[in-house]
Nucleic acid binder design. Structure first.
Lengths: 332, 332
DNA sequence: CTGTTAGCGCATTCAG
DNA sequence: CTGAATGCGCTAACAG
């Protein structure tokens, strides 16, 4: 009955003995078409299982109703709510989501940007593989020239002109360290991300400030990693294997804290032996009756802020967004 | 320097005094263009920050290099690895991912299908909001007529002609129940999904078979829900509040088990008081030293199988995929 | 209310 | 090796 390929407005036009223009009108501005014609066209459209071709429409209108999302790892629990928020809000506003997981690879990140640009995305949310000061992705000039709205998330590119939504890192470090000090811990092990990551640097700065304020002598050890679980576990394992025993361990993100917990277990240490603190809440810890003191962030809000910033800038190119900071909340 | 809009092959053509045809060739079949011309074109292309317009290209070629993914909830941990696998493999094969979260809403699911069709996706991976026998989405005929490859995941549509990758549900139920019986539990509470969900029905069938095989008298209670955490928690809470005390609780998926754990805690019950079993592994349980016996599935493999099935069918329309079953593994 | 013309950016004939 | 012509599906002007 139906043609092999998909039906186009041309097919409909033929069937109703009209031109494509009228069909197009009927579909987009129903009020500008005579009722009978309209009905007839809609009827045939449904008969033919007509689905508008977004590619053609977008080619013409020069906007794709597509939003790109680039993230360094889809399965990082930190991003769960963020993606959910972005997806929901984008959909609500008529945008679809083109998703890229760079797996932490700068090459894939570059390819993702290229691909997104080629699809003429209306805007792009970017959480970059690295926030080191010396990470200068080659695609940056290209992205700027593309003149499409870009919103960064969590990790801030050293010198990119794009606004973003970030966490309150220094303060979180400060609060975390204070909490541990207040609990009486004096020898603290920090397990962080890359040494040159600005997030890690900021959090450490906050931590150091808290220690400086402490009247008693304190000791700080720092382990660097890459914000993922396995390296964190291995680093802590090695540290503990060397016989060192801090009073407390402060993991700078969820995955790091998970790796840390693994290491602690492997060394037969219990939660009573060692204080813990993490930035962002380890999922389900409460459910297992092992709540870990932490700074939580409303990540859904973060995602929402980012997508709203982006969509607003898409709607109004004159809008000049500024960075937004999501502040954390101490959770003991 | 550069024009406001993005550069097109026409811009490049003008700059090098050639036609778009040659430019297009240079970009796609470099070997069919004189070396000098080629170099010149590539040089100008880079100067102009040229990015091919995928919309135009795809409109012409009638294929989008886009794969759609529809899932009922992005933040369900069960889907984490699945999405990762799909994303990775798709990217590797030159496809990009258009992602939709239906939030459990049939309406959003229908809209997602429409949108995906309009973007001329090359194929579509579908995890439907409901696998009840009487869920017959209105979009089904449309989707069939679209003649694009579709692969289902986890939840199987009652009568849709699309192949899929599913879990071994009856067997998992059987193994789970046997495990609990072997541990001496005789009064078992099942917390499942919707009463009419085929997955729940199959798992229950396996469970009942195990109980039937038990020589001693057993008791089975069943609570239905919707595969998410809150309803599960509330159902179990109400159940426990009524004073009933099963020997063990068998949660039919991760979120259900999490809700169950919450309820147990709220009632001051400990892990010693009650046996537990879940289908799919509750994330991080081991890390918290509270491993929960379960049937695990290699969900990465599931995702990989699904995307490979899809891509193969895209490449070879003659290929007739059959359903694949991912079997579980008992983990005590 | 409906049609004509034209073009979005690209790539595929078919000639030269 | 390069170009002229054509059309993918859709829609904005501008008629009529």
């Amino acid at each position: 009955m139906t043609k092999p390929g998909k039906a186009t407005i041309t097919d409909i036009a033929k069937r109703v003995n009209m031109t494509t223009v009228t069909v197009s009108r009927a579909l987009n501005r129903p009020e500008k078409v005579k009722k009978e014609t309209l009905d007839r066209i809609l009827e045939v459209a449904r008969e033919l299982n007509y689905v508008p071709n977004a590619l053609a429409r977008n080619l013409k209108s020069r906007e794709s109703r597509l939003v790109g999302l680039i993230t360094a790892s889809l399965d990082n629990p930190f991003y769960g709510e963020i993606i959910k928020a972005i997806s929901r809000e984008a959909k609500k506003r008529g945008y679809s989501l083109l998703l890229f997981d760079t797996d932490g690879s700068p090459e894939l990140e570059e390819r993702a940007v290229d691909t997104l640009l080629s699809y003429q995305v209306s805007g792009l949310i970017l959480s970059v593989v690295s926030d080191d000061n010396d990470y200068h992705p080659a695609y940056l000039p290209k992205l700027e020239l593309a003149r499409i709205p870009v919103t960064q998330i969590d990790r801030k590119l050293a010198k990119a002109p794009f606004p973003g939504v970030y966490l309150e890192n220094t303060e979180s470090g400060y609060q975390g360290a204070r909490t541990l000090l207040k609990q009486g811990h004096r020898h603290i092990l920090i397990v962080g991300g890359p040494e040159k990551s600005n997030i890690t640097i900021s959090r450490l700065a906050g931590i150091r400030r808290a220690l400086d304020e402490c009247p008693e002598p304190t000791k700080l050890d720092v382990l660097y990693g890459d914000y993922t679980q396995t390296p964190a576990r291995e680093a802590v394992n090695a540290y503990l294997a060397s016989g060192k025993r801090p009073d407390a361990i402060f993991g700078l993100n969820i995955l790091i804290m998970l790796g840390t917990l693994e290491a602690i277990r492997q060394h037969g240490l219990s939660r009573e032996d060692i204080g813990l603190f993490s930035i962002d809440q380890v999922p389900y810890a409460d459910i297992f009756g092992e709540p870990i003191p932490c700074i939580t962030h409303n990540t859904y809000q973060l995602g929402l802020t980012a997508i709203n910033m982006l969509l607003r800038k898409i709607d109004d190119p004159g809008y000049q967004p500024y960075d937004e900071i999501i502040s954390g909340e101490l959770r003991l």
